[in-house]
Amino acid sequence: MNSDTTKGNWKQIKGEFKEKYGRITNDESTEAEGSFDKLVGEIQEKYGETREAIEKEVKSW
């Protein structure tokens, strides 16, 4: 397990919190940001790549 994998796991937790907080406060942008963070975290945990590389790839979709 490398540090990018650990960071990915933390990013998933943080993303889930943002999603739930966004739903509670009806803040759609926070909820969407949480979903994006969660996605990046899952990819980062699975493949161990840097956050920047994953975000660049996802945004190019």
Rank of each mutant, 00 (worst) to 15 (best):
E28Y: 07
E28D: 03
S35A: 13
I24H: 11
E42I: 04
D4I: 15
D37T: 10
N9A: 14
A53I: 12
K18T: 01
R23L: 12
E31L: 12
K18Y: 05
K20L: 02
D37V: 03
T50Q: 04
D4N: 15
T25N: 00
E55W: 01
D27S: 09
D27Y: 07
G34T: 02
G34K: 00
I43Q: 06
N9I: 15
I24R: 11
L39N: 07
E49L: 15
S3V: 13
Q12L: 10
E19Q: 06
W61Y: 14
E55N: 08
Q44F: 03
E19W: 03
E28N: 06
S35N: 12
T6W: 11
V40K: 06
E28C: 01
Y21W: 01
D27L: 02
A32R: 12
N26A: 05
K59C: 12
T25E: 00
A53D: 14
E19V: 03
N26P: 02
T50A: 04
G8E: 13
E52G: 05
S3M: 14
K59H: 13
G22Y: 00
K59L: 13
F36C: 01
N26L: 05
A53M: 11
G15A: 00
N9S: 14
D37G: 06
S3R: 14
T25V: 00
E57C: 06
E33K: 04
E33V: 01
E31F: 03
K46S: 06
S29P: 04
K56R: 15
